[in-house]
Design a protein around this nucleic acid. Structure first.
Length: 703
DNA sequence: ATTAACGGGCTTTTT
DNA sequence: GCCCGTTAAT
């Protein structure tokens, strides 16, 4: 062993060393939270290259772009040659391979990748054209969910027809599925599921492609293996069949994507495909305080379906976990923000987690009020904004003229008096001629001059933009489009209140495009487009507090963590209360959340929560009762966990009851809306005449 | 006859 | 808050 390798494994524990040194042959690494998983994988990559393996023959697959980026950066830090290795997400890899082998599948390599909302609108069109009953047509969201479900199981339309066991599918699903795929093929487009499915199709049926890819990669590593679905398993096994140097890493206790087709038992059954596989368990946690690890272990041990494994740590006990029970969700947000202000953790080392995306709104408002910079991971993505999606649709049409989805999105934006009827006739023409909407639109000058006239400005804009595509930086091409269609004017008229914000987004888009052109002088618009569909903006900006769902939190770590909405109905979610399996997954979600915190953790709940319609009362989460008392402070009576206390609290002594007019020394006059217990103390929720709704201690009030 | 604008009903988690 | 069905405007 030379000095480089000695340095690489210095201060690794024995299990980690074993994992880094077992380079050849199949290997399963069970890696508990904070057990140094990424360090192990990246050291393996560095070591392989150091041993003379061509970096390009190393493939590492992850689920999130963030994981891929981090892995790549850390591998490069250990061995600069790792820059040549392919480290990216399943979806990006598949997209890359599919562009390379598109013609083998009858696609053009500039195909469009449809995101979920695009896919939904195609599905909507297909259902409307179908011969389904009206009542079946009404349940569109069902179809979208079923379709995604079917695809993550790797079922093609022909499998649906054969498989009579799938008889709980909605009416006419097989027909819808078939025409949906035909429609997508006509548009030279693929949805997220297709990226995986089409790759499988190639590997199954195309020996040439299979051999090329098997020879291309000598070492394969898969992160978060507990989250793989059957299609991804098939992909990994097919690619790894040649050299059998397949290393998978995961933790069944962190399996939180079963609703997306992930099968945690994949990691337990890895040796079914690779019978000679070795196993390594990483159980020492280097991340969290002992209190946090104790709490996490105590919670997860209530799950019955799991491999035996126990996380331990040598870290100090640290501060107790804190439970905070506030009167409503607004106060909950307020409390978190005040807490962040009062403590001195670095903003980029502070994170706030919640179960549903909608919970972020109040929190954002509270953070904005206090001028705390924050960033949201995941949805509400920049590229999901209407104005950005519209402009991206214009760009998509430049690259892929068959993209009917993009066409339909923007043909009438800004309004050009092209509504449902015009679209119908256009679709009829297109179908008769077997052309895309854009192609047929361009050829209407004789057949339908009236419609053609209405389409003119739209078509002209695209033509002008296309002419500039070769010679101008991409941002300038977008500016030309903006100018041609007077898009800013349209936005100002349609969204007067959000005009400035949307302008900034548009400007940012132009800048992003120009930056891309500068960074990749030979970069094509299609490369940029693929990136924005598959890559989310998710880097950790310094000076910013991070907000995200519990699902997004996996794989991250922060000194200071808050988990909000720790209530039965949110955590566990109300839709998961029915089955034991679903409840266990919710518990794993809590486990993931807890183990993100390095130093201090706060769980918050609200007595009542203002939702889409009025207030709902949710009891504190049942999972609180599973946390040992010595790890946590601030709990109210145990009896209330998982059960709602309906009794109204009234302060008889002071004559304070609901709907009572009161006076507060700071806020003046108001009316009591409700009286609640916070931290065992009575507080009144008061609607003040001049200050709106506030929660104040009862003893500050005068009748 | 068509298109544009307005108000009502739901909201889990994501590549 | 977002998507959809209804009404008002052309």
């Amino acid at each position: 062993m030379d000095t480089y390798q000695q340095e690489l494994i210095r201060d690794l524990n024995p299990a980690q060393k074993l994992a880094v040194e077992s380079l050849d042959g199949p290997l399963v690494i069970f890696a508990g939270a904070g057990s140094g998983k990424t360090r192990v994988i990246t050291s393996r990559i560095a070591s392989l290259i150091h041993n003379g393996v061509d970096p390009r023959k190393i493939l590492a697959l992850t689920f999130t772009n963030r994981a891929a980026t981090e892995m790549k950066q850390r591998a490069i830090a250990l061995n600069p040659k790792a820059v040549g290795s392919q480290i990216s997400t399943f979806h990006s890899c598949c997209a890359r391979w599919l562009r390379e082998f598109a013609d083998e599948l009858g696609f053009n390599s500039n195909f469009t990748i449809l995101d979920d909302s695009d896919s939904k609108s195609v599905l909507k069109g297909v259902i409307q054209k179908s011969s389904l009953s009206e009542s079946a047509k009404a349940s569109l969201p069902d179809y979208k969910q079923v379709l995604s479900n079917i695809k993550v199981q790797g079922l093609f339309p022909k499998d649906i027809l054969k498989n009579k066991m799938l008889d709980d599918l909605p009416e006419g699903f097989d027909e819808i599925y078939k025409s949906y795929q035909v429609q997508l093929a006509n548009c030279n487009s693929m949805d997220f599921g297709d990226l995986m499915m089409n790759m499988i199709l190639l590997l199954r049926n195309n020996v040439k492609v299979k051999q090329i890819l098997q020879n291309r990669y000598a070492y394969i590593m898969v992160d978060e293996y507990q989250d793989t679905n059957s299609v991804q398993i098939e992909l990994v096994t097919a690619l790894g069949q040649g050299t059998r140097n397949v290393c998978v890493v995961g933790d069944d206790d962190q399996s939180i994507y079963s609703w997306r087709g992930a099968k945690a038992r994949n990691i337990l059954e890895f040796d079914r495909c690779f019978s000679e596989a070795k196993t390594v368990k990483l159980e020492q946690n280097y991340r969290c305080t002992a209190h946090i690890i104790d709490a996490a272990n105590a919670v997860i041990k209530n799950n019955q379906i799991r491999a035996s494994k126990k996380l331990w740590t040598e870290n100090p006990q640290g501060e107790k976990i804190e439970f905070v029970y506030e009167s409503d969700n607004e106060m909950e947000a307020h409390h978190v923000v005040e807490s962040i202000k009062s403590e001195n953790y670095m903003p980029e080392q502070t994170a706030i987690f919640y179960r549903t995306n909608s919970q972020s709104r109040l929190l954002e408002e509270a953070l904005l009020r206090e001028n705390i910079n924050y960033q949201i991971y995941g949805t509400t993505r920049f590229y999901d904004r209407v104005e950005v999606k519209d402009l991206v649709a214009y760009l998509r049409l430049l690259v892929n003229p068959l993209d009917d989805v993009a066409f339909l999105r923007v043909v009438n934006k800004p309004a050009r008096k092209i509504g449902g009827k015009s679209i119908q006739t256009l679709q009829k023409y297109a179908e008769e001629a077997s052309k895309s909407l854009l192609q047929i639109a361009n050829s209407l000058s004789e057949t339908d001059p009236k419609l053609f006239h209405k389409l003119m400005p739209f078509l002209a804009c695209l033509n002008i933009a296309k002419k500039n595509l070769e010679r101008e930086p991409l941002g300038n091409v977008l500016s030309i489009i903006l100018d041609q269609i007077s898009y800013l004017k349209y936005v100002e008229k349609k969204y007067p209140n959000q005009f400035q914000e949307k302008c900034e987004n548009i400007h940012e888009l132009v800048v992003a495009l120009n930056e891309f052109s500068t960074a990749n002088p030979n970069g094509k618009l299609e490369d940029w487009l693929q990136n924005i569909t598959l890559v989310r903006g998710d880097n950790n900006i310094s000076g910013y507090v991070s907000l995200m769902t519990l699902h997004m939190a996996k794989g991250l770590e922060f000194d200071r963590v808050y988990i909000m909405g720790f209530e039965d109905g949110l955590i566990p979610h109300k839709n998961s209360l029915e089955s034991k399996q679903q409840l266990e997954e919710e518990r794993r979600l809590v486990y993931v959340g807890i183990t993100r915190a390095r130093r201090k953790l706060t769980l918050t709940a609200a007595y009542r929560r203002l939702g889409y319609q009025g207030y709902v009362n949710l009891p504190p989460s049942r999972f609180l009762a599973e946390i040992p008392k010595e790890c946590i402070k601030g709990l109210v009576e145990e009896a209330s966990y998982g059960k709602l206390d309906e009794t109204e609290v009234v302060d008889e002594e002071n004559g304070i009851t609901r709907h009572q007019s009161v006076y507060h020394p700071t806020y003046g006059y108001g009316m009591i809306d409700n009286i609640v217990v916070v931290h065992g103390k009575q507080k009144a929720v008061v609607e003040f005449d001049d200050f709106g709704k506030r929660t104040v201690p009862v003893h500050h009030l005068r009748v």
